[in-house]
């Protein structure tokens, strides 16, 4: 959301902090980040196990532990996301930005092009942003809604293979496996989706730090404290 105040020039109103990210959104953000971290590390070692441990099999449970951690983190990831969807309904307007792209608004597209230009060094103008700018919002939508859903569906479909046919996970997500061309392909897409998520993480962290340093509004402190603050009193 861009804030184009009608008032031109300097004004105290332009520096007024706004409460943007409510507590559940912030808590979800950090839980989501933590679960992604655990899921990526454990997931990678499930696909590419560590060098073998010696001794009796009964003395070790290394892969079992990785898988267990992966499943626990998957539940955090999934339940967190469900609660986040709920919060989109009851939270403030910024809580909905992740889920609904206002593609029917011409202004949104204009702002999107502006953001692309801004990050492409084609303009020096930066808009003050309250919630997410259209570029960030699109990235959030594709990576944190679509990709997250894809990871949840494929993940639980694979999880259902262990629980067995007829299990709740099989009934809810088992359809994904034939759709994606079998168990091995599902695993491959799940792994590919992880890499895409990592691409997002790299860009997201960079953008957040960059925005904190170079843009006109707070970024990192906002996802910690919830308040959007501004560095100047211009519109």
């Amino acid at each position: 959301m861009t804030n184009k105040a009608a008032v031109e020039g300097h004004s105290l109103a332009n520096i007024q902090p706004t409460y943007v990210f409510e507590a559940p959104v912030r808590i979800w953000h950090w839980l989501h980040a933590l679960s992604i971290f655990v899921l990526c590390v454990t997931g990678y070692f499930i696909a590419y196990p560590l060098p073998s441990v010696g001794g009796e099999a009964s003395n070790h449970f290394l892969m079992g532990t990785f898988r267990w951690l992966h499943f626990v983190a998957a539940y955090v990831f999934t339940i967190g996301f469900l609660v986040r969807i709920y919060w989109a309904f009851v939270g403030n307007r910024y809580a909905r930005e992740l889920f609904v792209l206002p593609i029917h608004k011409a202004e949104w597209w204009k702002d999107l092009i502006h953001e692309v230009k801004y990050y492409g060094f084609m303009t020096r103008k930066s808009h003050k942003i309250l919630g997410h700018n259209p570029l960030a919002q699109s990235a959030m939508f594709f990576f944190n809604v679509i990709l997250t859903l894809f990871l949840i569906v494929t993940g639980f479909a694979l999880y259902a293979e262990g629980l067995g046919q007829g299990s709740w996970a099989d009934k809810m997500f088992g359809w994904a496996i034939p759709l994606l061309g079998g168990s091995l392909n599902t695993k491959m897409w799940h792994l590919t989706a992880m890499w895409l998520m990592l691409v997002f993480v790299v860009i997201h962290i960079y953008m957040a730090i960059r925005a904190d340093i170079m843009s006109r509004e707070s970024s990192i402190s906002t996802i910690i404290g919830g308040w959007r603050m501004y560095k100047d009193d211009l519109p």
Binding site: P51, V53, F61, M63
Partner: peptide, 11 residues
């Protein structure tokens, strides 16, 4: 399977 769960693999 117990070797899988333990983390014991043929390399």
């Amino acid at each position: 399977r117990p070797h899988f769960d333990a983390g014991q693999f043929v390399e």
